[in-house]
Deep mutational scan, measured.
Amino acid sequence: TELRLDINGREIKVDGADKETLKELLKLAEKNNDEKAIRIIRHLLER
């Protein structure tokens, strides 16, 4: 399955993203107070 998050109005594919990319996405999600995106990205970073 493909995991996509809508961050800042942009749909971004997050599964398969490297750790650096995920960290950047996490910063974006935190800036937007997007709890769902934050939770998902943190979960991916823990893998």
Results as ranks from 00 to 15, higher is better:
residue 1 T to C: 15
residue 1 T to Y: 08
residue 1 T to E: 15
residue 2 E to M: 03
residue 2 E to S: 05
residue 2 E to T: 01
residue 2 E to Q: 05
residue 2 E to I: 03
residue 3 L to F: 01
residue 3 L to W: 00
residue 3 L to M: 06
residue 3 L to A: 15
residue 4 R to W: 15
residue 4 R to L: 15
residue 4 R to E: 15
residue 4 R to Q: 15
residue 5 L to V: 15
residue 5 L to N: 08
residue 5 L to C: 14
residue 5 L to D: 15
residue 5 L to W: 01
residue 6 D to N: 14
residue 6 D to V: 15
residue 6 D to M: 14
residue 6 D to E: 15
residue 6 D to L: 14
residue 6 D to A: 11
residue 6 D to W: 05
residue 6 D to Y: 08
residue 7 I to T: 01
residue 7 I to C: 09
residue 7 I to E: 06
residue 7 I to H: 02
residue 7 I to V: 03
residue 7 I to S: 01
residue 7 I to K: 00
residue 8 N to L: 05
residue 8 N to E: 06
residue 8 N to D: 12
residue 8 N to H: 02
residue 8 N to K: 01
residue 9 G to E: 03
residue 9 G to I: 01
residue 9 G to K: 00
residue 9 G to P: 01
residue 9 G to T: 00
residue 9 G to A: 01
residue 10 R to G: 07
residue 10 R to T: 14
residue 10 R to C: 13
residue 10 R to Y: 12
residue 10 R to V: 15
residue 11 E to Q: 08
residue 11 E to N: 06
residue 11 E to G: 03
residue 11 E to C: 14
residue 11 E to W: 07
residue 11 E to S: 12
residue 12 I to G: 01
residue 12 I to Y: 15
residue 12 I to F: 13
residue 12 I to C: 04
residue 12 I to V: 13
residue 13 K to Y: 14
residue 13 K to I: 14
residue 13 K to C: 08
residue 13 K to M: 13
residue 14 V to K: 00
residue 14 V to N: 01
residue 14 V to C: 02
residue 14 V to Q: 01
residue 15 D to Y: 02
residue 15 D to P: 04
residue 15 D to S: 08
residue 15 D to K: 04
residue 15 D to E: 05
residue 15 D to Q: 06
residue 16 G to N: 08
residue 16 G to F: 13
residue 16 G to L: 14
residue 17 A to V: 06
residue 17 A to N: 14
residue 17 A to F: 08
residue 17 A to E: 14
residue 17 A to S: 14
residue 17 A to K: 11
residue 18 D to C: 04
residue 18 D to Y: 03
residue 19 K to N: 07
residue 19 K to T: 11
residue 19 K to E: 08
residue 19 K to F: 12
residue 19 K to L: 12
residue 20 E to Y: 04
residue 20 E to G: 09
residue 20 E to N: 09
residue 20 E to A: 09
residue 21 T to C: 14
residue 21 T to R: 12
residue 22 L to D: 00
residue 22 L to A: 01
residue 22 L to M: 07
residue 22 L to G: 00
residue 22 L to H: 00
residue 22 L to T: 00
residue 23 K to F: 06
residue 23 K to N: 10
residue 23 K to D: 07
residue 23 K to M: 12
residue 23 K to H: 09
residue 24 E to L: 06
residue 24 E to M: 12
residue 24 E to Q: 09
residue 24 E to W: 07
residue 24 E to S: 10
residue 24 E to D: 11
residue 25 L to F: 07
residue 25 L to P: 00
residue 25 L to S: 01
residue 25 L to E: 02
residue 26 L to N: 01
residue 26 L to E: 04
residue 26 L to H: 04
residue 26 L to D: 00
residue 26 L to V: 04
residue 26 L to W: 02
residue 26 L to K: 03
residue 27 K to F: 07
residue 27 K to S: 10
residue 28 L to K: 03
residue 28 L to I: 09
residue 28 L to C: 07
residue 28 L to G: 04
residue 28 L to W: 12
residue 29 A to P: 00
residue 30 E to Y: 07
residue 30 E to I: 09
residue 30 E to C: 07
residue 30 E to V: 08
residue 31 K to C: 11
residue 31 K to W: 12
residue 31 K to F: 12
residue 31 K to I: 12
residue 31 K to V: 13
residue 31 K to Y: 11
residue 31 K to R: 11
residue 31 K to M: 13
residue 32 N to L: 14
residue 32 N to T: 14
residue 32 N to Q: 09
residue 32 N to W: 14
residue 32 N to V: 14
residue 32 N to C: 13
residue 33 N to W: 11
residue 33 N to P: 05
residue 33 N to A: 08
residue 34 D to Y: 05
residue 34 D to F: 07
residue 34 D to S: 09
residue 34 D to G: 02
residue 34 D to E: 13
residue 34 D to M: 06
residue 35 E to C: 10
residue 35 E to K: 07
residue 35 E to A: 09
residue 35 E to D: 09
residue 36 K to M: 10
residue 36 K to Q: 11
residue 37 A to S: 06
residue 37 A to Q: 01
residue 37 A to C: 05
residue 38 I to S: 11
residue 38 I to W: 02
residue 38 I to E: 07
residue 38 I to M: 07
residue 38 I to V: 11
residue 38 I to Y: 03
residue 38 I to G: 06
residue 39 R to D: 11
residue 39 R to H: 12
residue 39 R to L: 11
residue 39 R to A: 13
residue 40 I to N: 03
residue 40 I to A: 06
residue 40 I to T: 10
residue 41 I to H: 00
residue 41 I to G: 00
residue 41 I to W: 00
residue 42 R to G: 08
residue 42 R to M: 09
residue 42 R to E: 10
residue 42 R to H: 08
residue 42 R to F: 04
residue 43 H to F: 06
residue 43 H to G: 12
residue 43 H to P: 07
residue 43 H to N: 10
residue 44 L to M: 08
residue 44 L to V: 12
residue 44 L to N: 07
residue 44 L to P: 00
residue 44 L to Q: 09
residue 44 L to Y: 14
residue 44 L to I: 12
residue 45 L to E: 03
residue 45 L to C: 03
residue 45 L to F: 02
residue 46 E to T: 07
residue 46 E to N: 10
residue 46 E to A: 08
residue 46 E to R: 05
residue 46 E to V: 06
residue 46 E to F: 05
residue 46 E to W: 05
residue 46 E to Q: 09
residue 46 E to D: 10
residue 46 E to L: 07
residue 47 R to N: 12
residue 47 R to T: 12
residue 47 R to W: 10
residue 47 R to Y: 13
residue 47 R to E: 13
